[in-house]
């Protein structure tokens, strides 16, 4: 199982997870993932042929409603928590 999480795979997962791991932390993450995957591989012992994947359990149906706006203009309240803002907008580094 350990072979699944090689250097390239760890790099790929870091991109998906938007995490940057370096040095010791990277090695630790690799070893932890190996342990966790070895453990969850236990599921391979379970015969699931013909079994449907179960997503939700209490027989809910889709709930439809009219698409009416009910909340007011919370712009200032929302922006209060922004790490950086400008002219009533969130500010982020240049994207291009």
């Amino acid at each position: 199982m350990a072979d699944k999480i090689d250097e390239n795979m760890l790099e790929y997962i870091s991109i998906l997870a938007k995490l940057e791991l370096e040095g010791e932390e990277k090695e630790q993450a690799r070893s932890d993932m190996k342990k966790m995957l070895d453990h969850v591989d236990k599921l391979n012992e379970l015969d699931t042929d013909g079994v449907e994947p179960l997503v939700q359990v209490i027989n809910m149906q889709n709930v439809f409603r009219e698409d009416n706006v009910t909340n007011g203009d919370d712009r200032n309240a929302m922006l209060k928590n922004a790490p950086a803002k400008k002219n009533g907008q969130y500010m982020v580094p240049k994207t291009f």
Partner: peptide, 30 residues
Amino acid sequence: VKRRIMLGSFVLSSGYYDAYYLKALKAKNL
């Protein structure tokens, strides 16, 4: 938290989704 985000990203990634995530949903059914 990082451990679980990494594991979660892996089990949902293309190529492993069926073997892990879907398998877990089937186990949940059983």
